[in-house]
């Protein structure tokens, strides 16, 4: 009688132990699996965002400054071919509150936000008042190029154009027409003109392209 009771309790004990061991293995497996997934996701999201805003990215003018027209040309296949780190994961890229790219069906996933500036070029035209002796004019904002239209009055010829005392245009028989000049965007430009006679307002027209930046966030979501 006693031996049978022992057998029964042994069977119950084994059953309980096996069940608990099974549950334990399941929990451990789940814990490992979930940790592994988010790590891969996070790595993809971090490196995709890093590459998007880096200076060498095809969408930036310099580090963390996105070019507006180039960003609007982003498309899912372009993202996959230019940033192979995403592989076949679902990706969503938002700029501010506008969705730029959505690939696959990201639900949840890992999101990395980056602070970026969105740049666009303005086109500003000025007809500066020019006064002797140097006919100097200073551009109020920085630019990387200037389009000059020189139209001197009859009998006057403009021979030299200087930007911050460096000669950028020179023609001893006289400059007349439209010229493109590249200048450094890192300093304020003062243009001066050498002319054989008097110059006035309207004889030189300047078009320059200052940048206009607005701050926004780039949110990159990657879901495995």
């Amino acid at each position: 009688m006693r031996g049978q009771a022992n057998l029964l309790s042994l069977a119950v004990a084994l059953l309980v132990l096996t069940t608990v061991a099974g549950i334990g293995l399941h929990v451990a497996d789940g814990a490992f699996a979930s940790t592994d997934w988010t790590a891969a996701e996070r790595r993809a999201a971090v490196s995709l965002s890093e590459r998007l805003v880096s200076a060498g990215s095809p969408f930036t003018a310099r580090a963390n400054v996105l070019n507006r027209s180039r960003v609007s040309s982003l498309d899912p296949s372009g993202v996959r071919s230019q940033f192979p780190v995403v592989r076949d994961r679902s990706v969503r890229i938002r700029l501010g509150d506008r969705q730029v790219v959505s690939y696959g069906t990201p639900t949840g996933g890992t999101t990395i936000r980056r602070v970026v500036l969105l740049e666009r070029r303005q086109r500003v035209q000025v007809t500066p008042p020019l006064a002797p002796p140097n006919y100097t004019t200073t551009l109020p904002r920085r630019t990387s190029r200037i389009r000059l239209t020189v139209d001197p009055p009859a009998g006057t010829s403009v021979t030299t154009v200087r930007a911050n005392d460096r000669v950028v245009l020179r023609n001893t028989s006289g400059l007349d027409g439209t010229f493109d000049v590249r200048v450094s965007p890192m300093e304020t430009v003062a243009l001066s003109f050498d002319a054989s006679g008097p110059l006035g307002r309207g004889d030189v027209t300047l078009t320059y392209y200052p940048e206009l930046t607005t701050k926004t966030t780039l949110a990159v979501t990657v879901d495995a």
């Binding site: 009771a5 022992n6 309790s9 042994l10 119950v12 004990a13 084994l14 309980v16 132990l17 608990v20 061991a21 549950i23 334990g24 929990v27 451990a28 814990a31 490992f32």
Partner: peptide, 23 residues
């Protein structure tokens, strides 16, 4: 208690402790 039940109880406690570690 029967000895095997006591052993099973200790075993369950042990396994649960390890599982808690994972969870």
């Amino acid at each position: 208690l029967s000895l095997s039940t006591v052993e099973a109880g200790i075993g369950v406690l042990f396994i649960l402790a390890v599982t808690m570690g994972f969870a």
